[in-house]
């Protein structure tokens, strides 16, 4: 009796589909990441003017999210994993930005 109810409970949230992409798609994503890295490195040789910092930061975020979503399967996995990981990430960003702000770190930059 108790095993039957356990199974019901388990299927309530269970994601059946086997997630992930094909190996070819992984290679495509890796190529995109490589291209983004090339743009990043090019900022060292070419003057991007006022777009320098925003370009680098945006590229960094895109690369980060791409690896997390596709290589780490977070996009296809249960949302609980995303909540657990992004909770830590966002908390870290918030707390440490607050910490640097008390040192007037961002004022010096701007």
């Amino acid at each position: 009796m108790s095993t039957a109810t356990t199974h019901e409970e388990a299927t309530e949230n269970h994601e059946v589909e086997h997630h992930g992409l094909s190996d070819k798609q992984y290679i495509v994503i890796a190529l995109i990441l490589a291209a983004l890295t090339a743009i990043e490195v090019s900022t060292y040789y070419v003057d991007f003017g006022p777009f320098f910092m925003p370009t680098l930061l945006i590229l960094m975020v895109i690369k980060f999210v791409t690896v997390v979503s596709y290589f780490m399967h977070l996009k296809f996995d249960n949302k609980i994993f995303s909540y657990l990981f992004y909770a830590g990430l966002l908390l870290a960003i918030a707390v440490y930005c607050g910490f640097l702000a008390t040192f007037k770190f961002f004022l010096k930059q701007g």
């Binding site: 388990a10 609980i80 994993f81 990981f85 909770a87 830590g88 990430l89 908390l91 440490y96």
Partner: peptide
């Protein structure tokens, strides 16, 4: 079976990585 239907190990690993964000942060 687990209450959420998810693997204990994987959940633990993701939590550990969330925690590591604060270390590297």
């Amino acid at each position: 079976a687990s209450s959420t239907g998810l693997s204990n190990n994987k959940m633990g690993m993701w939590m550990f990585l969330g925690s590591e964000c604060l270390l590297f942060g």
